[in-house]
Amino acid sequence: MVNFELNGAHVSFEAPATMTLLDMLRVELGVTSVKKGCEQGECGACTVLIDGYPMTSCIILAPQVEGRHVCTIDGLAENPLMKELREAFMENGAVQCGFCTPGILLSAYALLRDNKRPSEEEVKTAIEGNICRCTGYVAIIESILDAAERIAPD
């Protein structure tokens, strides 16, 4: 039995030892905002926050989150920082197919939470593990810098 917190709510789930966190979230708990892109820990589409830090849930086993806090984009719908990120992504046209979007938002959120005014290089580094094949990253990087500006204006 794995006991952990998912988006602020306590979850107990009988997870087989070999089940990935990604499969537990998507298949067993119905959290489909977490995407399966590679199952190799390389594309970042399955990014979740574990105790606040972005991790790829496809290479973490479900029992490993015992006692941890797991956060997906669903848990941040009302979060003010996430709202700013969403606004910026919409206005800059940073959303295309949308498959990488939840993962990128979580990486961006973790960056801006800890670093109010990141440089462009810091933004690029923060989302380096999140592959996007549609946008060429330009609008995404601009959006994250924009959101930072909105939260902590000069």
């Binding site: 919409m90 046209g93 959303v95 949308g98 979007t101 938002l105």
Partner: peptide, 14 residues
């Protein structure tokens, strides 16, 4: 410039 109608659903993971 306009905001795409599908953007919000994608940003909310819905």
């Amino acid at each position: 410039k306009t905001v795409r109608l599908d953007a919000l659903d994608k940003l909310l993971g819905k």
